[in-house]
Amino acid sequence: MNISELKESITTLTESNNTVSKKLQLICDLLKQEIEYYDWVGFYFKNGDKQELRLAEFAGEPTEHIIIPFGKGICGQVALSNQNFVVPDVEAQDNYISCGFKVKSEIVIPIFVNNENIGQIDIDSHTVNPFSENDELLLEFVCEKVAKLF
């Protein structure tokens, strides 16, 4: 993973003339394509005034988890904690929502606009414990760029 090249590509995508939806889709596609252990990449955003997240753009297999209540699963926990959450092995998590038997690990990074958690990027991997500090740094950068779209 060449982080500086990916950051350049993300910056170019977020500064393009595409719609926000198209920019988010292109980011999902790029990350899934460029990082071999990113098997599912998606964005969840707060669903209006409800205490739930709604799936937006994603790349990977379709999921039944379109709506996730705050507090439920890894994404729902991040909606409340406002903290990065790296799960090296999903089987070790009590409050995990299974997106499929192939998923072995997950990383979720919140997106902040004016100090408010408006959503997150969610990555699932079919590999146990693939995520490093570099992944967190890259995804925090992605979230900072995405936040500027809102």
Results as ranks from 00 to 15, higher is better:
residue 148 K to N: 14
residue 146 V to Y: 01
residue 113 V to R: 05
residue 113 V to E: 10
residue 100 G to S: 05
residue 93 Q to S: 00
residue 101 F to D: 15
residue 79 A to N: 00
residue 108 V to F: 05
residue 106 E to I: 04
residue 116 E to N: 14
residue 95 N to P: 06
residue 99 C to P: 07
residue 114 N to K: 13
residue 124 D to K: 08
residue 129 N to W: 06
residue 134 N to K: 11
residue 110 P to N: 05
residue 83 Q to W: 00
residue 85 F to C: 04
residue 123 I to V: 14
residue 116 E to C: 07
residue 137 L to E: 15
residue 117 N to L: 10
residue 81 S to E: 05
residue 89 D to V: 06
residue 113 V to K: 13
residue 81 S to F: 01
residue 104 K to Q: 14
residue 122 D to I: 08
residue 147 A to Q: 05
residue 131 F to V: 02
residue 88 P to W: 05
residue 142 V to Y: 01
residue 82 N to H: 15
residue 102 K to Y: 12
residue 97 I to S: 03
residue 148 K to Q: 15
residue 129 N to G: 08
residue 131 F to N: 11
residue 149 L to V: 09
residue 97 I to L: 12
residue 122 D to H: 00
residue 117 N to H: 12
residue 124 D to W: 13
residue 118 I to C: 02
residue 146 V to C: 04
residue 99 C to W: 06
residue 89 D to L: 07
residue 93 Q to H: 00
residue 92 A to V: 14
residue 96 Y to N: 00
residue 86 V to Q: 12
residue 113 V to Y: 10
residue 81 S to C: 02
residue 99 C to S: 00
residue 123 I to N: 11
residue 117 N to P: 10
residue 118 I to R: 09
residue 100 G to M: 05
residue 89 D to T: 11
residue 107 I to M: 15
residue 87 V to F: 02
residue 131 F to T: 05
residue 91 E to P: 04
residue 145 K to A: 13
residue 146 V to N: 04
residue 91 E to M: 05
residue 131 F to E: 08
